[in-house]
């Protein structure tokens, strides 16, 4: 007995050093993640000259809102913002609806063909036709350069269907289904009266997952859209932030505003991330929940 006690005291010293190292490591990770985020926010509130001459380190230098007012004066950005809002709201609605329409029947043990449909779903996760054939399908459906090109092809996400199905399987007991059948309740009636009220948590997960996906999406817009009045925010951001082209400004303005432009980029990054950031507390909670449901049975 005495001996084990001794060793445990001796080991706890080793353990204390180890746990100390763990904390140091985590603090370093924290700094590495947090510093870039703080820097962006600080830069967005600093003056143009402070940003371009590299005088911003941690806190805003010569604080000003000029970066933000410049962003809000740009009609393209405002248009992109409202387009994205539309795509996100309508797209999320379509996606959540069809996801539940597919996931709920798949959760019923008496549903014939559920195995086959599951195989069809999972197979798309490991093999796909590739970019060009999908593009041609969208083109043949005459969806190119319409809002539908952003709403329909990406509407159904397999991972989300699986999450929702798992949720229904584990929360809606078979007895409930049987009891409602005895009462002569139809399946659709059962869905509206029982399933959907019970499914609020999973609907929240689905809404947030799809909404973030759709707000951040740019590739579909890049390949399917041609008219810039339809462009979502991400595509506008790409032309301003990455390609450095802003058709609304002429060359003289560009020369004059070079510094302002750098500043505006930081403000633009903050503003365009704002909708997701505002939702972040909810998003985090529900995303974690979704990931956990999804990982129970993939």
């Amino acid at each position: 007995m005495g001996k084990t006690k001794n060793t445990s005291i001796k080991e706890s010293k080793v353990d204390r050093i180890f746990i100390g190292a763990v904390y140091v490591f985590l603090v370093l990770v924290l700094i590495a993640v947090l510093y870039p985020l703080i820097y962006i926010v600080s830069a967005s509130f600093s003056s143009a000259s402070a940003v371009t001459s590299g005088r911003v380190w941690l806190f805003p230098v010569e604080p000003t809102l000029l970066g933000y007012t410049t962003v809000f004066k740009n009609p393209q950005i405002l248009q992109g913002f409202s387009n994205s809002l539309f795509y996100t709201v309508v797209g999320t609605f379509i996606s959540v609806t069809i996801t539940i329409m597919l996931a709920y029947p798949l959760s019923r043990k008496t549903f014939y063909g559920r195995k086959l449909i599951m195989i069809l779903l999972v197979f798309t996760m490991i093999f796909d036709g590739g970019l060009i054939p999908l593009y041609l399908v969208v083109k043949n459906l005459n969806l190119i350069d319409t809002i539908w090109a952003l709403l329909l092809p990406s509407a159904l996400a397999v991972f989300q269907v699986i999450i929702a199905r798992t949720f229904f399987q584990s929360t809606i007991p078979d007895e409930l289904v049987e009891a409602s059948e005895m009462d002569g309740c139809s399946d659709i009636g059962f869905i509206f009266k029982v399933v959907l009220p019970l499914a609020k948590p999973i609907i929240a997960v689905l809404v947030l997952m799809y909404a973030v996906m759709k707000w951040n999406m740019y590739f579909d817009a890049l390949i399917y859209l041609k008219s810039d009045t339809l462009y979502p925010l991400q595509l506008i951001l790409r032309s301003i932030l990455i390609l450095n082209t802003d058709p609304s400004a002429n060359i003289e303005d560009i020369l004059k505003m070079q510094g302002l432009k750098e500043l505006m980029k930081y403000s633009l990054i903050v503003i365009s991330s704002l909708p997701v950031l505002v939702l972040y507390p909810f998003v985090q909670k529900h995303f974690v929940k979704g990931m956990l449901i999804g990982s129970v049975k993939g």
Binding site: Y104, P105, L120, V161
Partner: peptide, 25 residues
């Protein structure tokens, strides 16, 4: 339970149109 099978039709159309037709493509 025809209503359940009816529900699945629309999502399946999405799946086939945007995942399986491209495979044939």
């Amino acid at each position: 339970h025809w209503q359940l099978y009816f529900l699945v039709v629309i999502p399946l159309i999405f799946l086939i149109t945007f995942k399986y037709v491209p495979m044939a493509g």
